[in-house]
Amino acid sequence: MAALTFKGNKVHTKGSLPATGSKAPDFKLTKSDLTDASLSDYSGKKMLLNIFPSIDTGTCAQSVRKFNEEAAQLDNTRVLCISKDLPFAQARFCGAEGIDNVEMLSDFRDGNFGKAFNLELSDGPLQSLLSRVVVVLNENQEVVYTQQVTEIVDEPDYKAALEALENA
């Protein structure tokens, strides 16, 4: 269980992130066209998983904008932005912002992603949403970098995540 804060108040996740060097857990998420996406769909690609509570907050939106600019330009790389927002809200945000270099995915159906990666919030006002996390996977779908942002309203360490992605 990770101990985090949301606006200075303690909150917790249901477990710990996958360890560096471990194989990423499989998942089933929903794309904006309401079809499923799973880990195997990205086989052979480096992946940056930008995970956050809701696209309708300033910090979450900024992380999508930043990774859209930076990480999406890298070769053999997919940037997956993951929340429990409905795919319609995710698509609306990307359309309004002109964001097209990242893939928005939703964990709204059964929450299996948040549970598999142990990053679902177990208490506090955002209970059941996903905590703010960045996970980088290499082409073999092994975890090479994780950051669980300890204050949920703070932005992730973009530089460290991008360096890990480039070296994955």
Rank of each mutant, 00 (worst) to 15 (best):
A161T: 07
K31D: 01
G111Q: 12
Y42E: 04
V11Q: 09
L126N: 06
D56W: 00
N68G: 06
Y158V: 01
T20D: 09
K7Y: 03
P125G: 10
T30N: 01
D100N: 15
Y42K: 11
D56I: 09
L29C: 10
S106F: 01
N112W: 00
Q127W: 01
D110E: 14
K31C: 01
A2I: 01
F27T: 12
A116C: 05
V144P: 13
L29V: 11
N50P: 03
S122D: 13
M47Q: 14
L49Y: 10
T30D: 06
G95W: 00
K31N: 14
S38M: 05
I99Y: 06
F67Y: 15
Q148I: 15
F52K: 13
S131T: 06
L162F: 11
K14R: 14
D110S: 13
N167L: 05
S43C: 01
N118F: 03
I99H: 09
D107G: 03
L74K: 12
A72T: 13
P125V: 04
G44W: 01
T146K: 11
S83P: 12
V102F: 02
F108R: 11
V79D: 00
F88L: 06
A37P: 10
M1R: 09
L137W: 12
V133Q: 09
C94R: 12
T30A: 08
D56R: 05
H12E: 14
P87H: 03
L86Q: 08
S22V: 04
F113E: 08
I55L: 11
L74P: 00
S32G: 05
A160R: 13
V135D: 02
T13C: 10
F117S: 02
E166S: 12
T150N: 14
Y158W: 02
P25G: 03
L165N: 09
T59C: 13
A37Q: 11
E166A: 15
D123H: 10
T35P: 05
N9K: 15
S122R: 12
D26S: 14
E103V: 05
F88D: 09
V133R: 12
L119P: 03
E151W: 01
F27N: 04
L126I: 10
S131K: 10
K23W: 00
D41G: 07
L17K: 14
P125D: 09
N68V: 07
L165Q: 14
L80D: 05
Q62P: 02
V11M: 08
V64D: 00
Q148C: 15
F117V: 05
A19K: 15
S131W: 10
A61P: 06
L121C: 07
F6E: 09
A96M: 08
G58N: 10
Q127L: 07
K7F: 05
L129E: 07
P25R: 08
K159I: 00
I152D: 01
T150A: 14
T35Q: 14
T20F: 00
A89R: 12
E69K: 13
L74E: 15
G8H: 03
G44F: 08
A116H: 09
T30G: 03
A71G: 15
E103N: 05
L86Y: 11
V64A: 12
N118C: 04
D33R: 08
